Simulated scan of single mutants.
Amino acid sequence: MTNRFITAAGLLCLAFATQPVVAAGFTLSSHELTNGNFPNAQLLSQPYGFGCSGENHSPSFNWSGAPDGTKSFALQIYDRDAPTGLGWVHWQVVNIPASATSLPAGLAANSKGAPSGTLQTRTDFGVPGYGGPCPPEGQTHHYVVTLTALKVATLPGVTADATPALVGFMTKANSLGEATIHITQGR
C-alpha cells in the first residue's frame, strides 16, 4: 500500500511539474494575425504540395511582461489538429535574447534580421524556418502560438537540425512561463 501511495504521489507531482506555467502579465501579440486567422501572406505556399497558395511569410510577434529571471525565449507555432496523430510543428525559434521584445515578419530560415543569437530549428516540414498553415480542404484547425520565457540563455543540445520533440522537451524543462495566441484557420 505504501509503495502505491508513493508511486501515485510521484506521478501527481510529475503531472503538475510538466503543466505550462502562465505568467501573470506576460503577453504575446501579432499585427498580422487578425480576427483569429492567418492572412494569405502567412499561409503555406504551393511548392510544399499541400494545396495552399499563400506566400509563406512568418508573422511578426511582440511581447511584454516576461517573468523575472528570463534569459531567453522560444517561440513555437503548433497545429494540434494535423492529421498525423501527433499534431504538426510549423515553426520553432529559440535562443531569442531576453532583451528582445519582438520578432519581425518575413523572417528568413537563416534568421537574418532576427535578434542576435536567435536560432530557427527543424519543423515537421523537416527543415528550419517558417512553414505556414494549410489545413486540408473543408477542415478547420486550431493553431497554438506559444512564447516561452526560459531560465537559460541557450537551450542545451539544440541545433538548427534538432527535432521538434527535442526542442519541445528542452523548452518545457527550462520554462519560467508562457504566453499564447490561439488561432482557428479553415480552408
Rank of each mutant, 00 (worst) to 15 (best):
T121W: 00
S60V: 09
S99Y: 09
G51P: 13
S99N: 09
Q46T: 07
A105H: 12
L103M: 08
N95V: 09
G87E: 13
P164L: 12
Q139V: 12
K112Y: 03
N40P: 05
L150C: 10
D81S: 15
G65R: 10
V127G: 00
G117S: 06
G168P: 02
T118H: 02
S72M: 09
P39K: 01
P97D: 10
T163Y: 00
P156D: 11
L75E: 03
S72G: 04
L75H: 02
T163P: 00
G126S: 01
C52H: 10
T140A: 14
G51N: 09
K71E: 11
P67K: 04
Q139C: 10
A165E: 12
L150V: 09
C134K: 07
H142A: 14
A41I: 10
P133M: 08
G69H: 08
T159H: 07
P136A: 03
P128E: 06
A66V: 12
G69P: 07
G131T: 09
P136L: 04
P164N: 12
P164Y: 08
G85S: 10
F50K: 09
W91N: 02
A108S: 11
A160W: 00
H90N: 12
P156I: 15
A108H: 08
G131V: 11
G129H: 04
E137F: 09
Q139T: 15
G113Y: 03
P136S: 06
E137P: 06
N62L: 14
A109S: 08
A109T: 01
V158C: 00
C52Q: 06
L86H: 13
G138I: 09
P115A: 12
F169A: 14
N37Q: 11
P104K: 15
L75M: 05
T121V: 01
A109E: 01
